[in-house]
């Protein structure tokens, strides 16, 4: 899927794509700054598919990574999501990488979620320190329209998910905003 992300240095919107990763070399713990071992997780998890976000300009460099799972063959679950180390902090290269991947995961929940679970994307935020965990949770509550479910688990559903699609994905599809 074609998307647009923001090049922070120039403020310009650049073309990017979210692609299903089958043969691509995924980030692992050997890659500096990545928290999750996507290479290993994508092989281990059941009913999981892995997606990467890359720009047209540098298609071999992964800007962000997502593993989407269907728990029990029916419940949509954002198992892992992380943006590349160079897209974090004040000196980050691109903005909107996480937003695009979260919105995409919600779309997958609409497409693949079965029956009543359709359009409900569950995920967990789990950090080593409680203070860090709360910061991440707050980001999801305030920026991405998530709600608390149980313990570390949160979810994005229905209208809040559609708002993410409008904000982060429709621009890449031409004038889809209605």
């Amino acid at each position: 899927m074609q998307v647009r992300i923001l090049k922070v240095e120039t403020g310009e919107s650049v073309s990017a794509a979210i692609e299903r990763s089958s043969r691509r070399l995924l980030p692992s713990l050997h890659d500096e700054g990545w928290k999750f071992n996507f290479a290993s997780l994508s092989k281990k998890l059941k009913n999981a598919s892995t997606y990467v976000l890359v720009t047209e300009e540098t298609p071999h460099e992964i800007e962000g990574c997502l593993i989407f799972q269907l728990l029990d063959d029916e419940v949509p679950y954002g198992a892992y999501l992380e943006v590349a180390p160079h897209n974090r902090g004040e000196e980050r290269k691109y903005d909107h990488v996480a937003g695009c991947l979260i919105a995409y995961a919600f779309q997958l929940s609409l497409d693949k979620g079965v029956g009543p679970y359709n359009g409900q994307l569950f995920f967990d935020v789990s950090e080593q320190y409680e203070e860090d965990e709360q910061k991440v949770r707050n980001n999801y509550l305030t920026r991405y329209g998530a709600e608390e479910v149980e313990g570390t688990t949160m979810k994005i559903a229905d209208k809040n998910g559609h708002a993410l699609i409008t904000k982060y994905l429709n621009e890449g599809q031409g004038s889809a905003k209605t």
Binding site: K35, Y80, L81, E82, V83, R88, V125, E127
Partner: peptide
């Protein structure tokens, strides 16, 4: 803090 978005 805005850049902390890891899920998992």
């Amino acid at each position: 803090n805005d850049f902390q978005v890891e899920i998992g």
